[in-house]
């Protein structure tokens, strides 16, 4: 039973529909909570309080108010914009992030599509985001947006490589692309998780993957495509209202995708840290989301601590440091797998 919905409703139209909408039910509250957390965490890191009024208790309703505001705003389309691409781009960016949720094993009893090439599929559909961002930057007909889009394309394409190589190391150890198999391979107590060295080298793999994933989500210190102090807001400078909200939502959705993939690959996925205790379908979902959220927290933490790289330094990091290390790492892991038999 890998998907309780199709198990109960069947794999027909309704079953597929419900199981494809279910992640959306998760993303919406997740994005709101994370937005609020980001406001509060950054505020407390900076010796201030952050929102305190909206909704009385520590400004919990601030993201709701923000979203409502964005929805009410006028949807401005620049006169010289390429209308079709301009309107399509935010949707495409969100679709790219959302489609990745299909292959994330939220719990032993729920994975949208239990496909054999699960992790491969996630890497592939995430690339759609690049297309959306390029479209947004190009169609805005704004030099700053175009620069932002060009930077994004270069950055995402570059960082796909170390991140894919890092994923490959895990796949080699497990012997399967299926994310449920990856989870199962880490079952038992938390010292069985890959990150804690059940297999050597996988901790390094995790570091490589995490850095690359930061770059893929355009978060600091790799937020060069957006770089509010250089490119103002990069590819989404011209967007407003609802469409801007889509970019925003896609960013948060993407943050969780990479965090969840990292949780599955290195932190045991839906496995409980305590072996058979506190495990099961519901606990599984709890553990995966908690692990993902911890990694999301680290992303936020880094964002508010580190300055931003310059675009050529970013490329340097990817091509001259991360990629060679990832290759060496693969070699080492492969050697170890072969020798162990």
């Amino acid at each position: 039973m890998h998907n309780f919905i199709t198990y109960y409703i069947g794999t027909g139209f309704w079953g597929s529909l419900v199981s494809s909408i279910l992640p959306l039910v998760y993303i919406m509250p997740y994005a709101l909570v994370t937005m609020w957390l980001e406001l509060k965490i950054s505020a407390h890191m900076q010796d201030r309080l952050g929102p305190m009024r909206t909704g009385r208790w520590h400004g919990w309703a601030q993201p709701l108010a923000d979203v409502t505001k964005l929805l009410q705003k006028e949807d401005i389309i620049p006169a010289a914009a390429d209308k079709v691409l301009y309107l399509l781009a935010p949707a495409l960016v969100f679709i790219g992030s959302y489609a990745a949720y299909a292959a994330i094993p939220f719990s032993p009893a729920y994975i949208g599509a239990d496909i054999n090439l699960g992790i491969f599929y996630i890497v592939a559909v995430s690339a759609i985001v690049v297309l959306g961002i390029l479209m947004a930057g190009w169609s805005s007909n704004n030099k700053w947006s175009l620069l932002g889009a060009m930077r994004t394309a270069a950055q995402l394409v570059s960082y796909e490589i170390p991140s894919s190589l890092a994923i490959l190391a895990v796949v080699m150890v497990v012997g399967s692309f299926n994310l449920n198999d990856v989870c199962s391979a880490q079952s038992g107590w938390f010292w069985n998780w890959f990150v804690f060295g059940k297999f050597p080298f996988l901790f390094i793999t995790f570091i490589i993957y995490f850095i690359a994933s930061l770059a893929e989500t355009n978060r600091a210190p790799f937020d060069i495509p957006e770089a509010e102090s250089e490119l103002v807001a990069g590819y989404h400078t011209e967007y407003s209202g609802m469409r801007f909200a889509f970019f925003y939502l896609a960013e948060y959705a993407n943050m969780f995708v990479v965090a969840a993939v990292a949780a599955v690959l290195f932190f045991g996925g839906w496995n409980s840290p305590f072996g058979a205790y506190l495990s099961g379908p519901v606990w599984g979902a709890f553990w995966l989301i908690s692990k993902g959220m911890v990694l999301v927290f680290i992303q936020i933490w880094l964002r508010w601590t580190l300055p931003r790289f310059r675009v050529d330094q970013l490329m340097y990091l990817s091509w001259k440091i991360l990629t060679p290390f990832a290759l060496l790492n693969i070699f080492a892991v492969g050697l170890w797998v072969v020798l162990r038999g």
Binding site: S42, W304, T305, P307, R308
Partner: peptide
Amino acid sequence: GLDIGAFT
């Protein structure tokens, strides 16, 4: 610092 991207 803000220009370089460090907000805090």
